[in-house]
Design a protein around this nucleic acid. Structure first.
Lengths: 336, 336
DNA sequence: TATTTTTATGTTATCGATAACATAAAACTA
DNA sequence: TAGTTTTATGTTATCGATAACATAAAAATA
């Protein structure tokens, strides 16, 4: 491998002089600069980041730790994050936690060893606290995206859960639904908590009763949806929901599947809406009514805040950016 | 930051002894091993990969360079690649080329500086050759996924373009179509070339004429589809296609969009099918007939081959893994 | 011209870990 | 028990780059 020592020898200067040329140090004569640069070109020299990092303490690596890149919501976050990172000269390490705190933890350990400059993370939930503390202890800046964890401070970019929930409920109520089920994520996740809270508020606001059987707590990425939906739909006709609100796209899609298994027609027999669009290429085959969160922007802004933290240009106090969602009404809530 | 020197001092041993404990060297007395391990625990020591890499010449970083992570095809490749990488102790760096050779090139330069151990790449096309040569020159192993570039050898995992094309054409012919348009990717990309070749073969095989106006060469990620489709559909009624085959999901979806703009009904007025499923969460709202390539497996197998190359356990000759696609017939080709 | 200041370059030490060699202590052998 | 082998540990040099200090040469000043 070509090093500054090879360049130095060939150019008849000291390695330090080569280093200075590489780093555009001002006090280098035009003559040597030219000479060294020519040899760098000739030998096709590329600086070794590892060696540099050892001294500078920065790697120009950042990591994105999300639930699952296959979920279009996170895919778009990733794309936004990568765009911003590359633009600022950082490279993006990808990690899927699959909503498992243990997997997240293993990943964080790897990151600490790799010495990433910062982490953009959608924590699995409150149990992530220990993982985040590890980062904080080692002074690795991190920024929350989509979800946060109580008890540890960081910049945060997320969707407006309250307003989004209100919009979705209002839409369903407007369509005549009075018994709306919520299939929510785990209460350890901040977004699920906020959505539940907003949901009950929205029911009250619309003069609807809170029916405990219609509040289901499940996981954002797990497969007992057939049973959940079956249980819901086997409630007595008077207690059965006429609409289901799913707390994310994965739950939404699986709810549709479960209903299809049961030969229930959507939207005629039951309406379905969810948070986050399951369509990566929007609007080509609209069916499911969704509140689409600006995932790309969340990734982009989150990465921007992270880089500002890393580079020390961020304000001392933690920022909280809340982005609005867009209600996209499609067939799944439009009774024919 | 805690280093082996801190551990050494506290344990009253030399740094080398600490290093030996960390690396499970056999010739360490049980007593010192215990003592050192306790202090490692106590101080919460994490080895510095940068320093290690400087000597070992390996970073345990691999990179995935693809067109666009937002495309579900590549999303699934990424997920497969990440799963395998993590399992083997590697971390995955993500890079989007957006089908631009220049962007790809910039990314490769970054990778060379970061000293990744290997690269899994879907090259933008033949112009990528220079980028790949850079990798080869520096002895960075790489593996092709989805596409390859002539003139440079590497392991390869791809879909069976010939067979897949045949299946798609056969399906359309079976549905009664005699004039099938192909909206293909750029001829600089191996998969587009193979698809074109197989397409013309399949026409012959089915006794259909090759109509040059129905062979469109465009890009896998670019937006003049309205015009392309408009041109196709404004051919004389006798020359106009009754079915469109799109060379990837992006083209497929945009073709649908363009047809909708023109108020043409799919599948009644024109049928559409494409390579790759645009649905990340399969089968929830089937509309578009596709030949779904096993993207996850492509990523997983590709990463596996890459890691074998990196670790020197791969056979000397380059491997070529060709995976079959699955034809999924949906509404877009099922005339009512 | 002598002296000071500036400019250009070199030397040494360091980042954190480990390979390669060296050596003291313990264990074994004759 | 003296000599040899083995085991456990330490020392030194190195990976590639750069910070901090040092110095020779050139330019500016008196």
């Amino acid at each position: 491998m070509v090093t500054i020592y090879d360049i130095a020898k060939k150019a008849n200067v000291s390695p330090m002089t080569v280093s200075r040329v590489i780093n555009n140090s001002p006090s280098i004569s035009e003559k040597t600069r030219k000479k060294v640069e020519d040899i760098i070109q000739e030998l096709d020299y590329i600086p070794n980041k590892q060696a540099r990092s050892l001294i500078s303490k920065e790697t120009k690596l950042v990591s994105l730790v999300i639930s699952d890149i296959s979920n279009p919501f996170f895919t778009n976050i990733a794309r936004g994050a990568e765009d911003k990172a590359l633009q600022a000269g950082y490279q993006l390490l990808l990690g899927n936690s699959d909503e498992q705190t243990v997997k997240e933890s293993r990943y964080i350990d790897l990151l600490l060893s790799t010495k990433v400059d910062g982490v953009l993370i959608a924590p699995t939930g409150d149990p992530s606290l220990a993982n985040l503390r590890k980062l904080a202890k080692r002074r690795v800046p991190f920024v929350f995206v989509d979800r946060y964890v109580e008890g540890i401070a960081a910049d945060l970019v997320m969707g407006d859960n309250a307003e989004t929930t209100r919009k979705l409920v209002a839409h369903l109520v407007e369509k005549g639904h009075r018994k709306i089920a919520l299939i929510n994520g785990p209460s350890t996740a901040s977004n699920a908590r906020e959505r539940l809270l907003a949901f009950t508020d929205a029911l009250t606001l619309n003069g609807l009763d809170l029916i405990p059987e219609l509040l289901i707590e499940t996981h954002f990425l797990q497969d007992n949806f057939s049973e959940i939906v079956r249980t819901l739909m086997s409630l007595s006709p008077s207690g059965r929901p006429t609409a289901i609100l799913a707390a994310n796209n994965f739950i939404g899609v699986n709810t549709l599947r479960a209903l299809r298994e049961m030969n229930l027609q959507v939207p005629d027999e039951i309406a379905v809406a969810c948070f986050d669009d399951p369509e990566p290429i929007p609007d080509y085959n609209p069916f499911l009514t969704v509140a689409a969160q600006p995932a790309y922007d969340m990734g982009y802004i989150g990465m921007q805040m992270l880089i500002e933290r890393i580079e020390g240009t961020a304000p001392a106090t933690n920022r909280k950016v809340v982005l609005p969602s867009q209600l996209i009404v499609r067939k799944s809530t439009q009774r024919s």
